[in-house]
Design a protein around this nucleic acid. Sequence first.
DNA 1: AACGCGACCTGCGAGC
DNA 2: TGCTCGCAGGTCGCGT
Length: 321
Amino acid sequence: MPELPEVEVVRRGLARWLRGRTITAVEVLDPRSIRRHALGTEDFIGNLENSTVLDVVRRGKFLWMPLRSEEPLGEAARGEVMPRVALMAHLGMSGQLLMQDPAVPDEKHLKVRLHLSSSDGMPAQLRFVDQRIFGGLFVTSLVPTSDRGPGGQGETPLPEIAEEASHIARDPLDPHFSFDDFYRKVRARKTGLKRALLDQGVISGIGNIYADEALWRARLHYAKPTDTLKRADAVRLIDAAKEVMRDALAAGGTSFDSLYVNVNGASGYFARSLDAYGRAGEPCRRCSAVGLPGVIRREQFMNRSSHTCPVCQPKPRNGRW
DNA sequence: AACGCGACCTGCGAGC
DNA sequence: TGCTCGCAGGTCGCGT
């Protein structure tokens, strides 16, 4: 499934092929994939046709493309400020954004097809393929950011953010990510540490897998109370999150040159490099290296699986540590 | 405010 | 062999 590093791989790939291209036609093959576009299919298409993609920007797992309308301004619109809009994408569990040549047969789960203005040697279609339909596309407004920084990571950073992504915090790979902001928000919460990590308003881009991995690397238990979290523990946790994401990004980066921007590009990383997630019943690598008997345990938490080593990530006692 | 849970989906593997 | 069932995941929204 696409996690933040995979989405960043997709962003970089798309930016390379899409910047400056004009959307000439749009086909919505399954309206469920644009259900977050409240005004329906026709409005969705109308907003995209004859628009030019200015950039591809990401915050957390949200990806958006600021658009410039190519329609000549009418008499009525002259002098008015055109609302800035963007095509928003979320890959959900199984979404893919593929640059594709028209000759390539439709993918089994092809949901939306964008036809692009021709450009030398560049594929003429952007396809949104999604098996489980947790992801989707919609058109949204761009709004000013609440701080001075850019809305997200892109080639030409703008001080604007897609409205639907404006409520989420910066992610650990964001150059403007602030540890102090994160720590302040965490301490203000009264909950377990993993719940805060998965709260996109506290820190974005961390899903179930990376939460377990970051906690394992930082030797912290998922239920550790946030309101008493020590600064040093928070530093270790954020460092671990950055590290595991950068490792994954490096692994997924091998497909940067591919024409086919594919979220499955990093799947190999998961099979090899995870220390906690999916390793229930297997020895903890850190413990076994020093002769300790830790075995990764899988528990239900937040209706999700959580993977911990009971030896090096001990459970907090009495709600305190 | 915190938190649990259902809804949204489909493919896959386990178990019968 | 073929069926059912549970599970996986991110996000949103509702009820407590």
